[in-house]
Design a binder for these strands. Structure first.
Length: 284
DNA sequence: ATGGCCCCGGATCGGGGA
């Protein structure tokens, strides 16, 4: 099974590119972020004609997450328990929920499409929202893993965090910026503490997943690595290959992010974990 | 090659992105 995650930066502006890519690259399941539309606006037809079903969570022109899959999707969840909201307080005292998390199960593998809040600036209310959102996600993920210790799980998406200095083109430029701050990196590390790991990094040690549209960032290769597939041990045991499709930043009307692809061999789950010489070592 | 922001709504700008 080939799975991928891609912040598409508006599916309506990019549907042709995305569907062409799915078919050309033989992808089974794609987690999308920033679809920037609600269900009534989603271009279902193009996906269906290519053999993909779509489930999505979109409330308005901001954020929005979706899955396209040519395998059956089950147990769809359009939020995680306790997900914080953001914005102007509602009549009941709560904050508006945003469309940033969507979970599905495909062939027994639990997958989430996540669009982590940007944070905007250090000290901005959105920055605290980002940290709280991540903390709650980690808490809920740990609880789920305790209840499903053997089921493969991956949190896929735009994490809006660069965990390593080498994940940005010039760490000096980011001295007072979001995405690289100590609290954000600590929030990311919490997912490693509860038993998830970046399953792509061991196979693709270098490379960015995002380049700003401005200032010739892509031609100069001034990018950021902020899109990750964080898998549990049972998920990592299935991984046979991974890649970052840098070509998707080229050509007409690209997203500012590119797809991150992971290949799984579901037959491996039935095998003993001893003779795994062909598989990459992901957990230490 | 990969090229000097792009997306949205509902307007002719402002918010958001990172």
């Amino acid at each position: 099974m080939r799975v991928a995650t891609w912040n598409v930066n508006s599916i309506r502006a990019r549907v042709g590119r995305v569907v062409d890519w799915l078919v050309r690259e033989d992808v089974d399941v794609l987690a999308m972020q920033e679809i920037k539309c609600k269900e009534s606006q989603f271009p279902f037809e193009a996906f269906q004609e290519a053999g993909y079903d779509v489930v999505l969570h979109g409330l308005n022109q901001w954020n929005g997450v979706a899955f396209a899959s040519r395998l059956p999707m089950e147990d769809v969840a359009n939020t995680f328990t306790g997900m914080p909201g953001f914005g102007k307080e509602l009549a009941d005292g709560s904050l508006p929920q945003e469309a940033r998390a969507l979970g599905v199960t495909v062939d027994g593998v639990r997958l989430w499409s996540l669009y982590v809040p940007n944070g905007r600036a250090l000290g901005d209310p959105h920055y605290e929202y980002k940290l709280t959102w991540l903390r709650e996600l980690a808490t809920q993920t740990a609880a789920w893993m305790s209840a499903h210790p053997t089921q493969p799980l991956a949190l896929m998406g735009d994490w809006n965090i660069a965990p390593l200095d080498s994940d940005v083109w010039d760490i000096g430029v980011f001295a007072e910026s979001t995405h690289v701050s100590v609290p954000e990196r600590a929030a990311f590390a919490e997912f490693e503490r509860i038993g998830l790991a970046d399953v792509v990094r061991p196979l693709v040690p270098t490379g960015y997943t995002y380049w700003d549209y401005k200032q010739l960032r892509f031609p100069r290769n001034e990018g950021m690595r902020i899109d990750f597939v964080m898998g549990s041990q049972p998920f990592a045991d299935l991984v046979t290959d991974a890649r970052i499709d840098r070509n998707e930043r080229k050509g007409d009307a690209p997203s500012d992010h590119v797809p991150v692809v992971v290949d799984l061999d579901l037959d491996l789950s039935a095998e003993l974990a001893t003779d795994d010489d062909d598989r990459p070592m992901i957990f230490g």
